[in-house]
């Protein structure tokens, strides 16, 4: 029981990190960035590459953040910025992000192939503590702590900092934001850097925990992230965190009465019901497009 709760907290933290980056771009720019899973995967492989060169795991996570953040800014320049200049609708951006995703995944496959990889032996902490009869491994505990710190950090950044105020202004009304003297291009670049960087960290951490990064590891995560965002409230950062843990606990609980291959049914059943009953989600405040 305690074991399962621990597991739910762990997987919920990964969902939350993944969904935060996803939700950040959606809330500021209304784009569903389907390249986010590819950036997640890129994070895991950037860490792998760094660690194969002898870089310690902690530094590899930082490198994954920086590389994926840079890739996110590039993604915006190539696939989204031209559409924004033309005032194209969100659907166009979604399709072009699919294109980018195909490219990124294939580039990873060209270097590492389609098979499961593993991190260099001994580069990840492997010790297991037993606390009050509960087996806790150091790695997962550190990952949970880091994930929670990042969630708090992002929330503070958006709520309290100057950049956060700019992002919120941009989300509200890009034209007004520009008129108020906000450097919109810089704010958008920052959004993509943070979003993709968080996705990259999530990928690296998930890769560490499973110790089997592979080129398709991001598959399924975008669907879970949809569920997390809708349940918590589209575009809401605390909503994404709440949704992530609700989902992970729900999934773990559902395993007690559903066979394991039906675990996904919980996520999508929940998503579907929330959409029909309360499409703005638990913490969503924005008016939802309804007819």
């Amino acid at each position: 029981m305690a074991d399962q709760i621990y597991n739910a907290i762990f997987i919920g933290s990964i969902y939350a990190l993944f969904a935060l980056g996803f939700t950040l771009v959606f809330s500021v720019l209304d784009i569903l960035n389907l390249a986010h899973p590819a950036l997640f995967t890129l994070g895991a492989f950037t860490a792998l590459f760094a660690m194969q060169q002898g870089v310690p795991a902690a530094l590899a996570v930082v490198i994954a953040f920086a590389v994926c953040g840079g890739a996110g800014v590039l993604l915006d320049r190539v696939a989204f910025a031209p559409l924004r200049r033309r005032n194209a609708p969100p659907l166009s951006a979604m399709i072009s992000s699919i294109g980018v995703s195909l490219i990124v995944i294939r580039l990873i496959q060209l270097k590492y192939g389609p098979d499961l990889q593993s991190y260099p032996r001994g580069s990840l902490p492997a010790d297991v503590m037993t606390v009050a009869g509960l087996q806790i491994d150091t790695l997962r505990t550190v990952i949970i702590g880091l994930a929670v710190a990042l969630m708090v950090g992002l929330t503070l950044l958006v709520r309290r900092s100057r950049l956060g105020r700019e992002l919120r202004a941009l989300a509200e009304n890009p034209r007004a934001a520009r008129l108020l003297g906000i450097d919109v291009d810089r704010a958008i670049a920052a959004t993509f850097f943070l979003s993709a960087g968080l996705g990259g960290i999530a990928g690296a951490l998930y890769g560490f925990a499973t110790n089997s990064p592979f080129s398709q590891m991001g598959l399924g995560f975008e669907l879970k992230a949809f569920s997390v965002m809708i349940v918590g409230g589209m575009g809401s950062i605390p909503g994404a965190v709440l949704g992530a843990y609700l989902l992970s606990f729900g999934e773990v609980a559902s395993l007690t009465f559903l066979p394991s291959e039906l675990r996904d049914a919980f996520a999508f059943g929940l998503l579907f019901i929330v959409l029909l009953i309360r499409p703005s989600g638990i913490l969503g405040q924005r008016a939802v497009d309804r007819v």
Binding site: I230, A265, L275, V288, R290, V291
Partner: peptide
């Protein structure tokens, strides 16, 4: 069809996953 835009897209996508499961 009470929903629109991305909400409609995500709802139909969720239906698809429910079918798969």
């Amino acid at each position: 069809f009470r929903l629109r835009g991305v909400y409609l897209a995500i709802a139909t996508l969720a239906f698809g996953e429910v079918v798969r499961v």
